[in-house]
Every structure is written in structure tokens, then in C-alpha cells.
Amino acid sequence: MLGDLTTLDPLAWDALKKALNQRVVIGHIRLLPSRRNRVWVVETDVRPVVVKRFLSGRCGHEFETLLQARLAGLDVPYPLWSDGTHLVTEYVAGDPCELMINHMFSNVAAEAMGTWLAQFHSRLREGNMVKIIADAVLSNFIFVHDRVYGVDLEDSRVGDPLDDVGQLAANILGSEPLFTPVKFDLCLQMIRSYGRVSGQDIVEKARPHVAKHLKLDARNKPLFRRTLVSAAKSLERGWPRLA
């Protein structure tokens, strides 16, 4: 069934045609939720793609980061076109890691995210300058055949890699179901997977970063604020024994 074509603005149409370098027939258009930008999944007779219209002004930055990541052998969507405002990438068909972690409780997905993060940090560093994704949340990872793809890299910057680890761990623990034993297991599996790839034990080093991001998340989750802050204070003292 034909989607609502009015959701795709004229400049996005132009970017789509240039990205695929030919006339295309649209089968369906789906608008995805986004905090800052407008993002569509567009099914065409050539291939499905993602069209992203940036309201944040960071289109060129994400395009460049995706290219760097692809050249470094990382699993990210292939960038097809950018005009400074719109970015067109391949569509990665898979399961969102929100589903894999919060509903399927997948050990494989947890470990794959840790592996991907460690590879991103090691392969996109220049000397002591380490690039982090700075938006390490479950919704930015897609699980595909025992691997994950990282998406939405517009916030990437130089920073502390443990901050990415802490943010992802906090997102695992602080999304429903919150702070269950299986969630702590998945959180620690992700952290240990990162450590195996990076060649260092970071379980204790990451803990204060997890607590920090739980407190930051509490600001945006008023219904769970007390629970998140309490868990953060507990983590500042140590990992719970149930984990």
C-alpha cells in the first residue's frame, strides 16, 4: 500500500533521487520517531533506504563519521548521499536492541553491543584522542545475525570511552523492567565484552560512569526519578551482589 507521500519534503525527495542515481518508484514511506530530526524509512523499487532531515545542523558530521566507521570495518549503515541538510543511508533490517534486551533478554545482543563499542573506540582513535558516540542508548543499536549495527552517530565527539560504556549500561538497567537481576547480568555482560575486546578489565572503572548516567536519566524520567537516583547512589558504593 502506498504511504503518505506528503510526509517526505521536496528536498528529501531530491536527496533520495540523487542517492539512488535514478528514477525510483516508491512503495511505502514510514516516519520514524526522532527527538531532533525528521527520519523516514523509504521502500523503493531499487532498495529500502533511510532519509534523515537534520534540524540539528550536524548532517555533515554524521556523514563523515559513518564514512570513517565504514572504512574502519565497523558495522554501520552505508552512507549513500548527503547535501548538508539531508542524509540518505542504507536501511539495516534487524531487531532493535531495545527489543532484544528489554523483552528477549538476549545475552548475545548485550555482548555484541560491548564488542561494537570497543571496536568503535579503538578504530576511530588518533593517538590519545578517542572518538565516542555520546548517545550510547539501546535505540541506537540494531541486532542483525549475532552482530549489532550502530546508528545515529551525529553526536559523536572526542571524549572518555568509559562515558559511552556507562551511558549504555545505565540505559540497560534503567529501561523497563528496571534493575532486575537479569538486567544486571546483561549490563555486566556488555561491560565484560567491551573489556575482552579492549584488553582491560573495566567493570569497576565503569561503575561511577553508570551511576552518573542514571542520575542524568532521572532528570528526564520523573516517574522513575527516585528509583533511578537511589540505584545510582547504591552503585556509587559498589555492584549489587545479585549481579
Score class of each variant (00 low, 15 high):
residue 142 I to T: 12
residue 222 P to H: 05
residue 236 E to D: 12
residue 156 S to K: 00
residue 202 I to D: 03
residue 206 A to W: 03
residue 40 W to N: 06
residue 190 M to A: 13
residue 181 P to N: 02
residue 68 Q to E: 14
residue 118 A to R: 10
residue 76 V to G: 07
residue 124 L to Q: 02
residue 11 L to Y: 11
residue 101 I to W: 01
residue 164 D to M: 07
residue 218 A to W: 05
residue 102 N to V: 00
residue 58 R to I: 08
residue 44 T to A: 11
residue 4 D to G: 06
residue 84 G to R: 14
residue 15 A to E: 08
residue 136 A to P: 02
residue 204 E to K: 13
residue 83 D to P: 02
residue 157 R to E: 11
residue 227 T to V: 13
residue 202 I to L: 11
residue 4 D to Q: 11
residue 148 V to Q: 01
residue 132 I to K: 02
residue 72 A to T: 08
residue 204 E to R: 11
residue 49 V to N: 10
residue 220 N to F: 08
residue 106 S to G: 04
residue 95 D to A: 14
residue 20 L to R: 00
residue 122 S to V: 03
residue 170 A to M: 07
residue 40 W to D: 12
residue 165 V to G: 05
residue 97 C to F: 04
residue 182 V to E: 15
residue 188 L to Q: 09
residue 29 I to D: 00
residue 88 V to G: 04
residue 100 M to I: 02
residue 131 K to V: 06
residue 240 P to G: 10
residue 36 R to S: 06
residue 73 G to N: 02
residue 49 V to A: 14
residue 199 G to S: 09
residue 173 L to N: 09
residue 228 L to A: 01
residue 120 F to R: 03
residue 29 I to K: 02
residue 115 T to P: 00
residue 192 R to F: 00
residue 150 G to F: 14
residue 180 T to C: 11
residue 97 C to K: 05
residue 235 L to S: 12
residue 220 N to L: 01
residue 215 K to H: 09
residue 180 T to W: 03
residue 70 R to K: 13
residue 166 G to Q: 14
residue 163 D to F: 02
residue 193 S to W: 05
residue 170 A to Q: 11
residue 4 D to N: 14
residue 162 L to D: 02
residue 28 H to L: 14
